[in-house]
């Protein structure tokens, strides 16, 4: 067992996912299988090996600080289910 049900629930919470109780068992065992499988990575000898984050030799690329074309706030919020005057509306965050 690589991961317990409680850990699956905790990680799901971190990822803002709700797991219905009837899906829990199947999901936990699938995740456990996958994690056990990927654990074979531990066998690889990686002493003195640098990690690769991406496969090409690019480093941060900068451009001139010139204003280009922008979407504009109307278009930017056009896919938001609840918007007001060019702004995204969300449930109240700060409690009064």
């Amino acid at each position: 067992m690589t991961i317990s049900r409680d850990e699956v629930l905790y990680v799901a919470h971190l990822a803002r996912l709700e797991i219905p109780p009837e899906e829990m068992e199947g999901l936990s065992s699938q995740i456990d299988d996958i994690l056990s499988y990927v654990a074979t990575l531990k066998e690889a000898d990686t002493k003195n090996v640098d990690p690769t984050a991406q496969s090409i030799s690019l480093v941060n690329r900068f451009r001139e600080d010139i204003v280009g074309e922008t979407l504009g706030s109307d278009k930017a919020v056009s896919n938001c289910q609840d918007n007001y005057d060019g702004m995204f509306v969300v449930p109240k965050v700060v409690k009064s």
Binding site: E7, V11, A12, A15, R16, L17, E18, I19, L27, I31
Partner: peptide
């Protein structure tokens, strides 16, 4: 967040999000 994501994503996507988060 939770309800939106839980209803919006399918099983494989949720599985991979959980594995990645872990």
């Amino acid at each position: 967040y939770k309800e939106t994501r839980s209803k919006g994503f399918g099983a494989e996507v949720k599985r991979r999000i959980i594995i990645g988060t872990y």
